[in-house]
Amino acid sequence: MPLENKPKLKIKPIKNGTVIDHITANKSLHVLKILNLPNKENKNITIAMNVSSNEIKRKDILKIENRELKSSELDQVALIAPKSTINIIRDYNIVKKEKISLKDEINSIIKCINNKCITNNENEPINSKFQIISKAPIIARCYYCDKLISKDEINKQFE
């Protein structure tokens, strides 16, 4: 392939921070919502949406400057983007690379779809809690009321 036809990197490398790669196409805004970003401390965030990927055909990429996300913060991302990978960047070099893994239990991120579930009662000191009973496709079960929640019902909550 002639050099001028080679695909160019569309977004610039970051000096320090976190790159979340292989996000399911068009889900990067959902991921930001889960991570509660951007916020006062993390202002510079670059998003690439629906770009081509060898591994998953189409993907999103997030570059978060000057913040190294902890794996505990990223576990919840697996709920909507299970194939994501994390790169921690220091001085333009990747110092750590890992895959996100969906934990057996998730807390607070999604709501139970059962209106009659105690977790939807605002008067009580309680957070939602789910057990992941299937990872592909994702099925979550409410710890309190037992209701099953499908992948589509989870995704709908971030729209």
Partner: peptide, 9 residues
């Protein structure tokens, strides 16, 4: 209780 999951909570 009429709400589900109260006893567990």
């Amino acid at each position: 209780h009429e709400i589900e999951g109260v006893s567990k909570f």
